[in-house]
Structures are given as structure tokens and as C-alpha cells.
Design a protein around this nucleic acid. Sequence first.
DNA 1: AAGTTGGTTCTTTTGATTCAGAACCAAAAG
DNA 2: CTTTTGGTTCTGAATCAAAAGAACCAACTT
Lengths: 157, 157
Amino acid sequence: MIELRPEQHEIIQKMSVFQVRAGMPPTEARILALLLVSDQTELTFDEIRETLNTSKSAVSTALNTLVLRNKVESITIPGDRKRYFKHQLKNWNANAKDGLEKLLSVNQLLKEILGVRTKETEDFNQDLKNVIAFIEFMQVELTQVFQKWNEQQENKQ
Amino acid sequence: MIELRPEQHEIIQKMSVFQVRAGMPPTEARILALLLVSDQTELTFDEIRETLNTSKSAVSTALNTLVLRNKVESITIPGDRKRYFKHQLKNWNANAKDGLEKLLSVNQLLKEILGVRTKETEDFNQDLKNVIAFIEFMQVELTQVFQKWNEQQENKQ
DNA sequence: AAGTTGGTTCTTTTGATTCAGAACCAAAAG
DNA sequence: CTTTTGGTTCTGAATCAAAAGAACCAACTT
């Protein structure tokens, strides 16, 4: 069992509220938050379960989906049967990119809608075309922004 | 009651699935999709209710939150008691900006976490600093991207 | 003033998520 | 081969969000 300072508990609370609002299940959110604030960066299944005071089943399913979604990485140390779990901070960038791309993929549907609409409603259709153009613009610009970040990072080494 | 062609029904289906995945309640999603595909761009409360085959209460609350969130605009025609509802395509841009800013606001919490962490775990802390830097970078770049788009639009007129 | 229209608000019902508890299982240790 | 460890999987049970239904209300009509 990990001992947490009061501030750490507080942040777990605030952070998980934030993530739950964004659609993440509570247990997953609390595990992620714990892995961010804990003094040890690698925790075992049981440390997580005890510290968060949650059932084995809840922790097991939550951890598995977190690993599946590349939010958490699971580490095995040779000669130790336990698995250790660690926040995948390194993937934050890539996850963000994936998330944005998924959002922008709505453009496919908007184009379909434009294809199906009456030609009568010219103003509306023009507005729709504009949204489509905006999303396409964002796609191009965001790729450049990500590229720029990656270049900056490489130059720092 | 609005008559919809099969393709229109299909798109309402696909579009609302997409939005529901992104966290929007089903009725709201279907109303938005209907307002995008319908041949008439302005529909009354009852046209929406009948076409989507939903209860008055569900339509009422959904419409009200959509109006509150600037996703739908409500129009009144003088001498007609009914309200007409229209998709706020013009606000797509601004809504996108708000949504992104909300996502990026997690940075506040990440900074708090960094302040509370042990100094022992240097690698982890460096990764965390990197995420924070990345989000700050995105904030700056995104503002510029939005600005660039707005300038382009002004020049077109 | 007695409907009718165009909704809103409150309560109940339904359905889906989430979690706990227990049974279960595979790998390693004894 | 039996036991322990480190989890997983399978029911319920509790909770929660969304929708339905019904009562309600204000504005307009007749």
C-alpha cells in the first residue's frame, strides 16, 4: 500500500473529475491520476488496488483497457511475477494526434451530406462548404504543427 | 412531418453515431444531423419531434441545450407562434475552438502535479515537463492557425 | 371565458455503466 | 502434485443518464 500525501489525494480527485467529464470511466481516470502523482512511477496491481481501495475486477479491467489504449504501459521484471504499471507520458503527443484526427474525420460525413442535399438551399450549402474547407484547412495546418514540434524536439538533442 | 429520402435517414444514423461516440446525447445528435440533411433548413419543434419519432420532453430539453451551446439557433417569425430551429453552421469554427481550449486546459492540472511530485524521479518529471511544453506549444500554434483562417476569410470578401 | 397551440417541467421507467464479490485459472514455488 | 501468487472472468447489484408520459402553463383564438 502506497502512502499518499493530502495534496496527492486532492489532485487525484481533481484530475479524475476532469477526465470523467471527458468521458473516461472513473476507475480508469483514478488509476491514470494515481500514476501521475505517485512518488513511485511504477506500481503493482495490488498497490493500485489498495491505494485506490477498489476491487480486483475493477482494477483489472481498467488497467487492461488503459494498456490497450496506450495510456499505460505494463512492465515485467525478470524473476518477478508481478507486472508493474507505468503512465505512458511519452505517448501523450501521439494520443493527442490520434484524437484530433478522429475529430477531423467528421469531414467525410459532411461531404456526404453536401452530396445528398438539395441544391435549392444555396446559402446553407455555402456555409456547409465553408465548414468542410475549414476542417480541411485544419488538417493541413495541424500536420504542419505536429511536424514543427517533432523537428524542435530533434534539434534539442 | 418531414418526408426523408433513405439516404437522408442513413446519414442521420451515421452522423449521430459519430457524435454520440464523441460524448453527445443521442437525441441531441439526431436533431443536429436532421438539421444538416433536411431539405428545409428551418424546422419547427413538431416537425423535429414527428420526424425523429421522439417525445416532446426529449426534444424540448435537447433543443434547449443545443441552443445554449450555440449549436442550433432558434428563429421566431413575427405573427407565427412557432419557433423555427436551424443548424448554426456559422459557429462551427468557434465551437471547435472552444472544444480544443477545454481539452488543453488540462495543462493547469499537469503543472500542479509537477509542483507536487518528488524531485527523485528525474526522467518521469522530464517527460511530464515535455507534455506540458507540448500543450503550451499547441495553444500558441492553434491560436495562430485560427487567426490565419480568419484572415483568409476576410480577404475573400 | 373556454378551447387550442406550442411548448416546459416534473416524475417515473427503462436501459446501460460501473463496480464488487466470488469463482476460476495459469504459472511458479515448495 | 499441492499450494501460493497474481491476476482474469463471470455473475449480480447499485447507480446513473436518457427518454417517455403526464401534468402544467402562457399566449393566442374563438
